Amino acid sequence: MTDTAATPTTLPRETQRLDWARHATHDADLGLARASADAGFRSYWRTTGTEPSRIVMDSPPDKEDVKPWLRIRALLEGNGVRVPHLLAEDTEHGFLLLEDLGPDTYLHVLHADNADALFDDAITQLLRIQATPIPEGMPVYDEALLLRELRLFDEWFLGKHLAIVPDVHDEQTLERVHRVLIDAALAQPQVFVHRDFMPRNLMPAADGPAVLDFQDAVKGPIAYDPLCLFKDAFVSWPQARIDAWLDRYHARAVDAGLPVPPLERFRRDVDLIGVHRHLKVIGIFARLHHRDNKQHYLEDAPRFFAYLDHVLPKYPELAPLAELIERRVKPTLVEYAHWTDGTGDE
């Protein structure tokens, strides 16, 4: 790995990116083709005209500092986690040169017949992540962060997307539910948490899967990442299979010496941290839609309401949230769909 020469910041970003990639690969004829983008400001570009191909991560410094990604990558690699190999870096201008792991993530290749084997490989990587020593100063999934995430649902989905103005009763309901979910999260054993450990962030690899998108890692509840893996944002599985995978994870975590609680308590932890994540992701999808003009994410919001429909009836302390969703959210969703599917007059 080498540091590369400075890139003039007065040039258009696409020119900076191409010039840097050519310098980093020592190939003046190299081209770049879009490989993928994520929900943030980073983008990924595949080199063309040379073999083997490489990936350029473009992370504009004024929008998304690449240094947290590099710090977490080094921590994970040091604990045996399969992460993308780093070939060159320019932290000042936000460019990285990485190995090319191909076009497909787990999301593309998972199906009913191979899911058991692929998820078992994913659990292997997850156990290594959770066993990674937590460095001093690492961000913590504390009460402030948990509450800030929960309020994404209130602000962006209820308020901005559905134009629901909560009355006093609704506000009290949300506050009580927030308290239940926050207390449950803080009571869990705390480990190294990826925060988005889902199929779209796993890449098939012979010694993998390789783990992506780990820059927002924190110290937090042990059930968070297993929940993310099996109750994904973009694909749903039968509940019986999810339960079996969670039990398999739990057994392997016990064998690995991780601080998982007894199985029944772990299942409850998964459910409650799942409600937290489902509400957060619905809010994030609404924010991506309205703030960032990334409109396709909201198409998956119904998946999260289905997750909530499964869990909320199991817990009396969450009954107020279930009642709020039935009384105010679902009728508004139906009306919203009417106005946005071409059947309304708007």
Rank of each mutant, 00 (worst) to 15 (best):
H276P: 04
H310D: 15
G78P: 06
L147Q: 13
N201Q: 11
D116E: 11
L98R: 00
P259L: 07
R267Y: 05
L158M: 13
Q172Y: 00
S59D: 02
D207C: 09
K160D: 10
V140H: 10
P12D: 09
A74F: 08
T124Q: 02
A35L: 15
E155V: 10
F41S: 06
D19H: 15
D269L: 07
P209A: 08
L279W: 01
R328N: 09
W156L: 01
E92Q: 12
M1S: 13
S236Q: 14
L258P: 05
A206W: 12
V191D: 03
H26I: 09
D232E: 05
Y336I: 05
H338L: 15
I282R: 03
L107K: 05
R252F: 01
P199L: 13
L152W: 06
G40C: 09
I325S: 03
T7R: 08
V235H: 10
V191S: 02
V311N: 07
M198Y: 14
T7S: 11
F153G: 03
A184T: 07
I222T: 03
P8L: 11
D345Y: 12
G80M: 11
D255Y: 04
R82D: 06
A253H: 02
Q16Y: 10
D183A: 14
T105S: 15
R241D: 14
A286D: 03
V81T: 01
T48Y: 01
N79I: 03
L98A: 03
Q295Y: 08
R34A: 15
D19N: 15
D104F: 14
A223Q: 02
V168G: 04
P133T: 09
F95W: 08
L76Q: 02
A244F: 01
D213Q: 01
N201K: 06
D65I: 01
R248M: 02
T332H: 13
F41L: 06
T132D: 07
Y297V: 06
A210D: 04
T340V: 14
L186W: 08
E175Y: 00
D100W: 13
P133N: 07
A185N: 03
P221C: 10
R179M: 04
A6T: 13
A39V: 05
A322Y: 07
P52V: 05
P262Y: 11
L11F: 13
D100I: 13
E77W: 04
M1V: 13
W45L: 02
A251G: 06
P12T: 11
H276L: 12
W245G: 02
I55A: 00
A306D: 14
H296A: 10
D213I: 01
Y307I: 11
P135H: 07
L30I: 14
G40H: 10
A115E: 10
R327H: 12
L70W: 05
R287G: 07
D300F: 10
Y224H: 04
F266C: 05
T332C: 09
P61A: 08
P262L: 12
E346K: 12
S43G: 05
P331T: 11
F234T: 12
N114Y: 10
R82A: 15
L174G: 00
G342Q: 09
P209V: 00
L158D: 02
H108P: 03
L186H: 08
L70H: 04
